[in-house]
Write a protein that binds this DNA or RNA. Structure first.
Lengths: 166, 166
DNA sequence: CTTATAACTTGCAAAATGCAAGTAAACTCT
DNA sequence: AGAGTTTACTTGCATTTTGCAAGTTATAAG
């Protein structure tokens, strides 16, 4: 198992190549878990609330490792446990994930609080800088906890200034 | 046909919700085709070089329309032809696609010329502004043509200034 | 030494995908 | 006007991927 989704690359387009590795329902969620929630172990991914099956999780972890996005390392304190960590290539997905998060929060009914999205949208650079810092320093404190309110909303910006301004 | 991949939303996380709609190998490629290449018709998507099967293409077009990303309109000049167009929700995916393109070009061997990637990375706002303008004005001229050189390279920035700076 | 825990495998049914062929409606050509 | 072409899909079927439940192995804890 743990084979590529299909034999190969479809075209030389960067978007296409990216999707060869990440274009499925689970891969980017795993990256999200490790990047913003500080998850490291198989167990944590499994219990992250999305309901991924263990065989699929194992398969995706393999593919992400083979794709150079994740690295496995044996836990120092517990010989049973494996820690997954983002590689430089993996942490470089931060902008993709940030934009996907903002898009989802703006256009789908989610549990993300408006204020949080507004703040992230108005300070992308700051959010990314903090994400990179956490990665470099191996800071496991979640940048964002799992959103778990009940009421799902379409977050709209409360102050229109700053939109489309990078 | 044309049903959701599974029954439903897994969590209230915006990334997860986004992936419910876009998390597969084809959906974002269709969005790319219509956004940056100016493709509008079934035929064009089909022949875009990625090799999507017609039944899958039809299914994804349905899902993207139901998801509010694409809109169908009957072509004015040819009654057989349907034109697909991005909705406001669809064009709002531009930052996601841009970041995915940059990531792919930097970290996977692609056909994208370094110079083009460098320029896009250093002027994200300009690229996005032009993308929005093309959409508003229904300008069908491709923003980027399909990359079709032979030699695949990892594009690295030739000038390190500007990295991670928004 | 027994039990628990972490990280996976395995088997199998169900769903999604890929491929080739077929179809209906709208045009074009003669 | 009739024949052939083009566009946008369907349909059938084999293959692949997914999801679910249960099982396995290697540590660790009591």
């Amino acid at each position: 198992m743990a084979r590529k989704l299909k034999a190969g690359p479809r075209s030389g387009c960067p978007v296409s190549m990216s999707l060869d590795l990440l274009g499925d329902r689970w891969s980017l969620l795993i990256v999200r878990d490790v990047m913003v929630r500080g998850y490291r172990t198989f167990r944590e991914f499994q219990q992250s609330g999305e309901g991924i099956a263990t065989n699929i999780l194992a398969d995706r972890l393999d593919k992400l490792e083979q794709g150079g996005v994740l690295a496995r390392e044996r836990a120092a304190d517990d010989g049973r446990s494996t820690h997954y960590r983002l590689t430089p290539k993996g942490i470089a997905l931060a902008p993709v994930l940030l934009e996907l998060l903002i898009w989802g929060a703006r256009h789908e009914p989610t549990d993300a609080p408006c204020a949080v999205i507004d703040q992230m949208e108005q300070d992308r650079a700051g959010v990314l800088a903090e994400t990179y810092r956490r990665w470099e320093q191996r800071d496991p404190v979640p940048l964002l906890p799992p959103f778990k309110t009940g009421k799902k909303t379409h977050a709209r910006p409360n102050s229109p200034k700053g939109r489309n301004k990078r």
